[in-house]
């Protein structure tokens, strides 16, 4: 059985989930179970199912250059319990460069190897914050192949979207302003600063 584990803390609409949807389409014919580890409590039922997984694909967002803390907490709780043969990782970055996922992928690889698993492949997805509005990253198919053929690639695979960085930057910033306006704010409100004299933290 192949476990596809969404490690985003978001309950709904996570980019990590969208990337797993893309991946799942390429894994037809395999027994697939989907999991969501969006809190730091793992139910006994989920744990039961996860321990049966022979291959696990974790999909998670990059948080401050590393693993989201609730996800790291879950990895700690799962130490010595999960015995997958292979572990794969997808880390999506809010930044343009997929290579910024390298440290998070490295941590996941060390964890996998400490569990006696082979780390199959790691994808760093640039502009991952837009996954739900963007076409499937070309590297997803590569990952699917590694999962299906249970072979390990030597290096992490980094994906940059097929449009220039300035365009991503401009679009993402426009998106923040749009969301701010939806919340009744003006663009300059985004610059708010803590003032120790007037704000009581």
């Amino acid at each position: 059985m192949i476990a596809l584990v969404n490690g985003s803390p978001k309950k709904n609409g996570s980019n990590s989930g969208v990337l797993l949807d893309f991946l799942e389409k390429h894994l037809a014919g395999e027994e697939i179970l989907r999991f969501q580890l969006n809190t730091w409590n793992i139910s006994p039922e989920v744990l039961d199912d996860l321990t049966r997984a022979e291959r696990i694909v974790f999909s998670l967002p990059l948080y401050v250059d590393g693993l989201p803390s609730h996800f790291a907490q879950n990895l700690l709780a799962l130490e010595g319990i999960l015995k997958p043969r292979m572990v794969f990782g997808i880390v999506n970055c809010g930044f343009y460069e997929g290579s910024q996922a390298k440290h998070a992928l490295g941590m996941l690889k060390f964890w996998a190897e400490a569990q006696g698993a082979i780390f199959g492949a790691g994808l760093g997805i640039g502009a991952g914050g837009g996954s739900s509005q963007l076409p499937e990253p070309s590297v997803i198919k590569q990952l699917a192949q590694a999962v299906l053929e249970t072979h390990a690639t030597d290096n992490f695979i980094y994906y940059q979207p097929p449009f220039p960085r300035w365009a991503y930057k401009a679009t993402a910033e426009m998106g923040w302003r749009y969301q701010a306006r939806q919340n009744g704010l003006k663009p300059r409100d985004l610059d708010w600063k803590f003032d120790p004299k007037s704000d009581n933290p």
Partner: peptide
């Protein structure tokens, strides 16, 4: 050190 990164506790503070 937690697999080459910060502990989950410290990462929670950093995040």
């Amino acid at each position: 050190l937690f697999h080459g990164g910060p502990s989950p506790m410290v990462k929670r503070l950093i995040d």
